[in-house]
Amino acid sequence: MVSMETVFSAVALVAAPFAGGLLMGVDRKITARMQSRMGPPVLQPFYDVLKLWGKSPVITSRLQPILAFGYLGFSFLSVALLLFGGDLLSIVFTAALAEVCIVTVSMSAKSPYSYLGGRRELFCMLSTEPLMILSALSIYIVTRSFIVENVLTFEEPLLPLLPGAFIVTGIVLLIEMRKSPFDVSASSHAHQEIVRGVYTELSGYTMALVEVGHWIRTVLVLSIASIFWAPNILVGWGLALALLFMVILADNAFPRLSWQRMVKTSWALGFALIAANVLLLVVTGGATI
């Protein structure tokens, strides 16, 4: 007997890429409006991916297709873990595995741009991973569990308790979505000194796979953000979308910073916020270490 929840999770898993694509489309539309432009249709990301799928690919190394599939697969897996109530740490690690795939792809290519992009992607990982783990830890401190199901059934919303961790999730989203000021490793448009960064060597269907993987990862981070108002999913997703809007706003309000600055800022800000948050919890008696 399959429970309702399992069915729901399965449907959500299938819907994840589509939701991600749609979000990207909305993102591009809002960005365009912020730049006084009309912007592309909301379905534009789907057109792009379909088109890429139909192009003849230029495969520069044999690893490329495998790793592109790996990127998509691990991204999917991490969302699946989240939906089926896995634990937060394993989600973070699976997501990191996907990242490793894309870094390997770009570092294995001969193009210096791709290589530099891969290097910078590593620094992105270096910025995001500790923050994700710290967020998970702070959630653990409050709920005494890494298991998503337990977090979801915690008696009160997490946001009032963990505002710092929520903002940190926002920073992660910023880096993850490759938005200014942290769009160091790649950019959606050609407005980057290293051209397309990690994407430089991808083409045709491998690019399409990576693009879809990217959507899924965006959904993943947003879902984690939505946990902060569990178990009410609607409010949670409302929060997540508000976060997305803030990220788009930041994208249009900042230039790109260098990767050194990115690592420094994200670490300083992330550690400080989480530490302040946990300290506050301890002081107010919300949690014990």
């Binding site: 365009a32 432009r37 009309m38 890429l52 050609a190 994407y199």
Partner: peptide, 18 residues
């Protein structure tokens, strides 16, 4: 903004492979 070719999906991609 005045002409905004991106409404037709035009993106200046800068990468010949794509």
């Amino acid at each position: 903004p005045k002409f905004d070719a991106e409404r037709l999906g035009v993106v200046n991609i800068g990468d010949p492979k794509q």
